[in-house]
């Protein structure tokens, strides 16, 4: 933790009111501190935070392309090492930049053991270009390229499990987090930047515009994702799950009904079959990670 007088991710940026990603950026820098270099991929966060000639970043920051932030970070890490410098390097990307287009570069950087932290702010679609589905879009979410329709219930595939893929690269520290639990997220960022080698955090960052809810509900929606088991907060150290956020689970409907992207599951008639499939995803998550709080009789 630092005692910076002002936000290292400063006010005045162009994010929507209630933007989960903007909150994530602020929390990341609160945790990482000023001795940090940030590499952003193209995306919402990059665009809303750096309209030339203005910038919200009070740490050294670079944006190169959509898909290369891990490779750029690799070069920065190498350069710092040669110069004997101590800055920590954080690569930041949305879910499209991370699980889809940038995956080759991320895989390369992790395989090489690059000493950096990659943080994916996961708002579950390409929001900057207008809410298109990505490999991290959840099952049945309606997006502009996976629209619900007469013969479609929205996105037909579950989320790609990138944390497991990167853990399989031998990453010493992999974690998931949520902007709805800021203290937990900041602890994980601190741990990641202070762990040598490539570390990965995927932070759930609700997007009011893309998901269809009012901006003041960002935290509530983030909590519901966890409380229904559709998002699990956990840590993996050297490939083993070491810590999981336990919950008393609610039915997934509690989460789905709050967002326009799942509205087609309830209107004009409730689609019990599809909702049951989503409930199964939550149940499998709970079983896999052991999230359920079991009360002793």
């Amino acid at each position: 933790m630092t005692d910076e007088p002002c936000n290292l991710f400063d006010v005045g940026h162009r994010a929507c009111g209630g933007c989960g990603a903007a909150l994530a950026a602020r929390l990341i820098l609160e945790a990482a501190g000023s001795n940090t270099i940030v590499v952003s991929s193209t995306g919402c966060m990059e665009v809303f935070s750096t309209p030339y000639p203005e910038t919200s970043w009070r740490v050294p920051w670079i944006h190169s392309l959509f898909e290369n932030n891990s490779a750029v970070a690799s070069g920065i890490v190498a350069s710092l090492k040669k110069q004997g410098r101590t800055e920590k390097v954080i690569a930041l990307g949305g879910d499209g930049a991370t699980v889809d287009i940038g995956m080759l570069c991320i895989s390369g950087a992790f395989e090489r053991g690059t000493d950096f932290t990659y943080i994916c702010y996961d708002n579950e679609a390409y929001m900057n270009t207008g809410i298109q589905r990505s490999g991290a879009t959840p099952y049945d979410a309606s997006t502009t390229t996976s629209p619900a329709g007469k013969c479609s219930f929205g996105n037909s595939r579950p989320k790609k499990d990138l944390p497991a893929i990167l853990a399989a690269h031998g990453a010493p520290y992999v974690a998931t987090a949520s902007v709805a639990y800021p203290a937990d997220f900041k602890k994980k960022v601190e741990k990641a930047v202070n762990t040598p080698g490539p570390c990965y955090i995927q932070v759930h960052a609700p997007c009011c515009t893309g998901w269809g809810f009012e901006g003041e509900k960002t935290i509530a929606i983030g909590k519901l994702a966890i409380e229904t088991g559709l998002w699990v907060n956990y840590e993996m150290e050297n490939g083993e799950v070491t810590r999981v956020k336990k919950v008393r689970r609610k039915p997934v409907e509690a989460y789905l009904t709050e967002q326009k992207r799942f509205r087609h599951l309830f209107r004009p008639t409730k689609n019990d079959v599809e909702i049951a499939k989503i409930q199964q995803i939550a149940d499998r998550n709970a079983e896999r990670y052991g999230t359920d709080i079991v009360l002793k009789k």
Partner: peptide, 13 residues
Amino acid sequence: FSALSACLGASAA
């Protein structure tokens, strides 16, 4: 692609 991206990062640093 990553070769030149890494060079870009190192040059920036």
